[in-house]
Amino acid sequence: MHAGLLAQYVVIALAVLLSVVVVARKQFPEGVRRLRIACAVPLVREGRPSWLRGIGRWLAPIPRSQGSDGCGGCNGCDDKQ
């Protein structure tokens, strides 16, 4: 395959991947949150190397503030909390 064409497919693959992430985060925030927790928990266990634990911490979602009640992610209103 021509290098230029290959580069185009790489850019498209990245754009599609990013789009999947955006749609998942916007439309299924709770599912994405659970998925991130499920992925992060095994990585941050005792005995894991520090770099793996770092990745786990990066993957883990930010703890939800008490009492805050985010709206479903439609962006139809300003969702600043």
């Binding site: 754009a15 599609v16 990013l18 789009s19 999947v20 955006v22 749609v23 916007k26 439309q27 962006n75």
Partner: peptide, 8 residues
């Protein structure tokens, strides 16, 4: 969301 869905 609109750009992401359009790309998909």
């Amino acid at each position: 969301i609109i750009l992401a869905l359009t790309v998909l």
